[in-house]
Simulated scan of single mutants.
Amino acid sequence: MKFSGIKEYANSRGLAYTTVYSLCRDGTLPAVKIGQRHKIEVEGADRYFNEQIELRQKKLQKLKCPIVISKHTRRDGGGYLDQLNLMRKEVK
Score class of each variant (00 low, 15 high):
residue 89 K to D: 14
residue 52 Q to W: 02
residue 77 G to M: 09
residue 18 T to A: 13
residue 75 R to G: 12
residue 54 E to D: 13
residue 66 P to Q: 03
residue 73 T to G: 12
residue 59 K to P: 01
residue 41 E to Y: 12
residue 27 G to N: 05
residue 46 D to L: 12
residue 53 I to T: 09
residue 43 E to G: 10
residue 54 E to H: 08
residue 79 G to R: 06
residue 24 C to I: 01
residue 18 T to S: 15
residue 18 T to G: 14
residue 61 Q to H: 07
residue 5 G to A: 10
residue 52 Q to D: 08
residue 83 Q to W: 07
residue 92 K to R: 15
residue 69 I to C: 05
residue 12 S to T: 10
residue 48 Y to W: 15
residue 73 T to P: 08
residue 44 G to K: 12
residue 5 G to R: 07
residue 34 I to C: 04
residue 68 V to W: 04
residue 24 C to F: 10
residue 18 T to M: 13
residue 43 E to K: 09
residue 33 K to T: 10
residue 19 T to V: 13
residue 70 S to H: 11
residue 49 F to Y: 15
residue 75 R to D: 11
residue 91 V to W: 02
residue 9 Y to N: 01
residue 56 R to W: 01
residue 30 P to G: 09
residue 82 D to Q: 12
residue 68 V to D: 06
residue 2 K to W: 06
residue 28 T to H: 08
residue 42 V to T: 08
residue 83 Q to N: 10
residue 56 R to N: 06
residue 22 S to Q: 13
residue 8 E to S: 13
residue 71 K to T: 15
residue 89 K to Q: 14
residue 79 G to C: 00
residue 7 K to Y: 04
residue 56 R to P: 01
residue 27 G to V: 10
residue 25 R to E: 14
residue 61 Q to M: 12
residue 21 Y to F: 15
residue 50 N to H: 06
residue 79 G to M: 05
residue 89 K to I: 14
residue 80 Y to A: 02
residue 12 S to E: 09
residue 37 R to N: 11
residue 20 V to H: 03
residue 37 R to W: 04
residue 15 L to P: 11
residue 58 K to Y: 07
residue 20 V to G: 00
residue 58 K to E: 12
residue 33 K to P: 00
residue 12 S to R: 12
residue 43 E to S: 14
residue 8 E to Q: 12
residue 8 E to M: 03
residue 82 D to E: 06
residue 45 A to W: 04
residue 10 A to P: 10
residue 86 L to G: 05
